[in-house]
Design a protein around this nucleic acid. Sequence first.
DNA 1: TATGAATGAGTATTCATTCAT
DNA 2: GATGAATGAATACTCATTCAT
Lengths: 215, 215, 215, 215
Amino acid sequence: MSKPTSPWSVAGDRVRQRELKRDAVILAAARAFRERGFHNTSLDDIAAVLHVTKPTLYYYVLNKEQMLFECFREGLNRIVRACGEARDASSSGRERLVELVCRYVEAITSDFGWCMVRAEDQDLSPAMSARIKRLKSEIDQEMRSLIRQGIADGSIGACDPKMTTFALAGALNWIAHWYRDDASLSAAQIAERFVELFVNGLAPRPDGVISGKST
Amino acid sequence: MSKPTSPWSVAGDRVRQRELKRDAVILAAARAFRERGFHNTSLDDIAAVLHVTKPTLYYYVLNKEQMLFECFREGLNRIVRACGEARDASSSGRERLVELVCRYVEAITSDFGWCMVRAEDQDLSPAMSARIKRLKSEIDQEMRSLIRQGIADGSIGACDPKMTTFALAGALNWIAHWYRDDASLSAAQIAERFVELFVNGLAPRPDGVISGKST
Amino acid sequence: MSKPTSPWSVAGDRVRQRELKRDAVILAAARAFRERGFHNTSLDDIAAVLHVTKPTLYYYVLNKEQMLFECFREGLNRIVRACGEARDASSSGRERLVELVCRYVEAITSDFGWCMVRAEDQDLSPAMSARIKRLKSEIDQEMRSLIRQGIADGSIGACDPKMTTFALAGALNWIAHWYRDDASLSAAQIAERFVELFVNGLAPRPDGVISGKST
Amino acid sequence: MSKPTSPWSVAGDRVRQRELKRDAVILAAARAFRERGFHNTSLDDIAAVLHVTKPTLYYYVLNKEQMLFECFREGLNRIVRACGEARDASSSGRERLVELVCRYVEAITSDFGWCMVRAEDQDLSPAMSARIKRLKSEIDQEMRSLIRQGIADGSIGACDPKMTTFALAGALNWIAHWYRDDASLSAAQIAERFVELFVNGLAPRPDGVISGKST
DNA sequence: TATGAATGAGTATTCATTCAT
DNA sequence: GATGAATGAATACTCATTCAT
């Protein structure tokens, strides 16, 4: 009587509603996993947060494993997206790497950061594990590529791209470990400090000309 | 008649034997945890590797939790020890930090590396968790201290010691994630690359005067 | 079409069904405990009797301990209720005590008799143990009180209320031990004999004037 | 050198020593069982009290079951002995019953009281259980016999010997339950009160002529 | 005589998952 | 769309018992 929306949009609403609820499930899972760890979190815990019962979760998600996978993906996607943008930008290799780092820190400090970093491959089926690895590798390759570009265009000094990527990714991923306890800095601030460190290194620069932000 | 060993060593042997066996239990646990994760490893798995039965493990260890704790400690101790030596050395702050990094990499690539890094606080009782945290904090403080010393003696440029330590420790800890799959470099080689990166940074040095190893 | 029951009773049915099943679990536990003892009874045993699987029990009961507690309570409640009625009755102290004894025998010969009497405090958590003790003490105090009233109103001769209660309760509780093997008498008959004994004693009455039932 | 005792008596000492130690094991078991219950007592608990290790217990005792059995027997024997003496005495049935009650209370308040009363038949093998039952039945029959004798010689009023025995034994056995917590009375005092109650009953005697002790 | 070491058997409890309603 | 009910599988932990020494 009072619903002016067409049955069509009603159906659309239903679809959207379902998506919203599904997202809520994933988010609740991500937070619970971060809080208590994957294995220490029971589906009852997640259901309780959402004020539903355990079987309801299965309406939105296939598996506990899939929950983890979706959390994974949710977080990784943000970085993958950032990678794409970095690729399209028309600045120097180093500048694009810096940009990627900023986005990376944002992702890693989000609710999904923990899942991206700490979830064990061992908790996923081979198939899912493989998909995750592919995504991760994509990011890894992108970083290496940016470093190689930087070396080529002279914005980055000579270095081993692989090891450098490992170090950089490690430092970034590790943020997920300490960020909750020590959130005294914003994502942007953390990114700034990291860029400064990785760009200039620890050794004092002769005259401090070059800095991550100055150029 | 045919036993040349003194009664003394007989008793001593037993004690030593017991210690050896206990160490074997811890090592087997460390490897299993690294392979399959803490929760995906059953005591039966560990017992099977050692060709004993499950209850035998309880003869050497109090708990599954304690196993994890001992793995933790075993790995951390190496670093704590390295910290002590770094403190006693009479070189510049940066040199001492570099030395610590080398030892750190060695520890993290050992069998216990995974446990040091990936074991969740959530899998430990509050008491144990607190003990671990204390040890970790010790290392964290040591690193920050070395950085501050380096800044003071001019061997390290101006930087935020806390964030720098987080980044450095993160890069180092992350090694535990990729080292198994990609062990193409030795611990020393990894350390070398990392030092180079962290000391000199990505930005090209004007004339390459300063390098991690050259001084 | 063919369902005459109101939607109301459907929901009500579910609740009632659940209660019935829970009661069945408690009863099955009580019988198993009486048969084999608390520790010699596995949850599988109880589940088997009910033709369900072990985890199902946990749907109705929190614990094995709680099962014992509920059996305890089920039996004790009958006596507590009898105590209440005895208190409200308007007869002599002795008559009311006799009435209580009859109800006591009924309770103790029920399926829950064994649990009331034999279950060890040591098998219960301190909290539960305390609750049980409180209930037991309530009954103890009630008996003493009736005896004191009997002495006051002249229906009971001079005696030590505490020891008398201990003796009476002991004799009654002990029924749980022999009743299963020797159920030749009904609860009422046992009560009659006990009352006769405790009222008149073993020594021959001069002229048999006073008897438990004659008054 | 300084041992004047003959090798013979040395051997005797050894035998005696062994007996003493065995008795200590039984006693420690009895106390532990009373304290924590049969199933909640581990052999390690008993061994710890005796400052030996678990396997040592097996040198003196065949089984955990046998420990319980021996505790049983130790306590029951005292009563069996009392039964024998009661049989040989040349007094009235009631006097002999009173005498037996006194000895019974002594036994039941001893360290072995709990085992006599609370140990479950279900914890014993059929063979042991049968032996225990035989001993218990012996006592039961003895009591009934004394009651019948008392009825015959006029020292006990008409009653159902079986039920009377059950009531009396129950009251006596139950002492094991409360005696530890409430040891305000000595065994003799308890016996006195019980005799008074069972002999004279609760109903006031016309002129208090007959009492348990007066005759 | 006593013990260190090891084990087999048993058990309470948890939890992801399913399905009829 | 959601839930009550049920289950199979898995697992940490305990403990009586054995045996070589």
